[in-house]
Write a protein that binds this DNA or RNA. Structure first.
Lengths: 340, 340
DNA sequence: TTGAAAGCGCTAACAA
DNA sequence: TTGTTAGCGCTTTCAA
């Protein structure tokens, strides 16, 4: 059996209230008694029971990170950022994989509330339209925007800016026929990246050709097949902006298989900067999302909500995406750089 | 404020013991009352308090996965296996990154005990010699062997077999001068893989050349530099068995940079089969560890320890590693395959 | 400086 | 079938 403060009280001959005070470093305990208690506690191998404490204090120093899939290369760094920041503040964090299933997400959210987590960081599954987490007691911060949901703090990256920068880079590098091969149609971030793409084309007076704008899934097969489709329909672009890195990797694979010379005749840019992208054998040009920082910021936001009783204060942190020019796009000649 | 069983009791006019019974589906509640209670609970938005329940039941339905770094491509799949299996059984899991630091590991283990997790899955940092988790109340299963520690269940892959298979594959493919570029000297799994390597050389009558056996760190820089060292000392091998995939990737990079033709003149095999390895642009031949399964099995073992009060029963599950022949090694001609 | 006692929300004996 | 009550391990008033 675990030793409790009562055991310590018995051993030391004081009341267990005093033991509690001593153990928690509260004032109003004679130095002698405190030392005695601490000593005895140590000797008996006392481990405070966080459950009991949580029951009375009404907080658990426990958080949760609810994401679609830790196996998706986009998430581990976020998770690490979350966990590092949380542990620094004395919080533990539950990891929950929803597997992109709204039902699983719903179930987790319920369980987590029952476990009385102090806060939740949530990357919702795209397809969640019913916002089942809207009647929440627990503070939550979102890891991406949900259309029409404004009641939560969130940390986001500026996807339209990212899409713009990506496309601009392609244009500056001299590519002329630039396709957008995106992911799911009803992903808000996908839509925003596409918007950035169109913005850039428009700004630099390139035609917007709808036949060059494809969508599919956020996996490499989708990227692969969409480029293939373009090639076989005789509509081969000379550059592709992929909706994310995984798609771009599929595009890269397809382009290589079809003997397209990269980056000379064919440019590819992705989005996210997942770890794969920087492998020497890949060297994918991409738009970086500051994943680790996103995790940290999410914790910051969550702490505001938890600590300051400002559950109502909604704050959005919008992070800037950055271009990582690598080897799947031509270098931009200095003199050709478009003024921005 | 959250609604409690007392609130429900008041509303329905029964005692709160009855409410508890009804809510937990315990027998001995008239069907009418049960329905009433359930109905009222639903209406009031009752959320059972798992903390309070945990306090009396003395379990929390909470587990922890303590690993060095979720950002390391070896771990996400394990984590997924753990989480999937755990959630199926109604458990939540804490994710803890020790960052390879024994101190952090120690701290987490302490916290987790205080939080009264029901069990822990631990991948210890290599360099932990003092086994600070030895005085544990909580069931733990280990994700790799620790020398001289036999008191815990563990799930392991047979590293010497893996090393043997890897080397055998290289030999069968016709490589003659096979180097082993490993990771940390004091990593047990590294030592075992090296042992398998030597075993294979011996068995197939190839000389064991200590100048071809290098160690370093478990990162790609280490692999890169160790091969470079070999090359510049005029001791270039015609194949390398990397202590893990990340090392092998570094080796691959170096080999490519130095114009070695892969796999014709130079073969590379790794260990782990991390996701990178199967990218079309990489196609690294490697020894697969069944990571997802390891996670699931770990949960199995943990459940035995938790449920059956067999905390003392120590069980090891030893998984078989498998060869994944891809493009960084020559194909093994059928007739040349060595009988095993 | 210390102790007695209530109570956090719940489960489970024991009685009725 | 239902209610009463003790108690899980702890914190925190209130009194002494």
């Amino acid at each position: 059996m675990q030793v409790t403060i009562k055991d310590i009280a018995k051993k030391t001959g004081v009341s267990y209230a005093t033991v509690s005070r001593a153990l928690n470093g509260r004032s109003g305990v004679k130095e002698d008694t405190r030392e005695l208690i601490l000593e005895v506690a140590r000797k008996m191998g006392y481990q405070p029971n966080a459950i009991a404490r949580g029951l009375v204090l009404k907080h658990t120093h426990t958080l949760a990170l609810v994401i679609p899939d830790i196996t998706n290369p986009f998430f581990p760094e976020i998770a690490r950022g979350v966990e590092d920041a949380a542990s620094l503040l004395g919080y533990s964090v539950f990891l929950c994989n929803t597997n992109w299933e709204a039902n699983k997400e719903k179930l987790y959210l319920k369980t987590l509330q029952e476990k009385r987590v102090d806060g939740i960081i949530l990357h919702p599954s795209h397809d969640v339209q019913d916002n089942h987490f809207l009647d929440f007691q627990v503070p939550v911060v979102l890891l991406n925007k949900i259309p029409n949901v404004v009641e939560y703090s969130s940390i986001e990256v500026d996807n339209v800016m990212g899409g713009f920068i990506a496309t601009k880079h392609l244009i500056e590098a001299g590519y002329k026929k630039i396709a957008f091969i995106g992911g799911s149609e009803n992903s808000p971030s996908n839509a925003e990246r596409k918007e950035g793409y169109k913005l850039a084309l428009r700004k630099y007076k390139l035609p917007i050709d709808e036949s060059l704008i494809l969508s599919g899934k956020f996996n490499s097969e989708s990227g692969y097949h969409n480029l293939k489709k373009l090639i076989y329909s005789g509509n081969t672009p000379d550059a592709v902006f992929g909706g994310n890195d995984v798609i771009a990797l599929g595009v890269l694979h397809c382009a290589q298989e079809h003997g397209l010379r990269i980056p000379e005749d064919f440019g590819i840019i992705g989005f996210d900067d997942i770890p794969y992208a920087s492998l020497p054998q890949i060297q994918l040009t991409t738009i970086e999302q500051p994943k680790y920082q996103m995790g940290r910021h999410a914790i910051e936001l969550l702490m505001r909500a938890i600590k300051e009783e400002k559950a109502d204060e909604v704050k959005r942190i919008i992070l800037e995406p950055k271009l990582k020019a690598r080897k799947t796009t031509r270098e931009v000649p200095n003199n050709k750089a478009i003024k921005y």
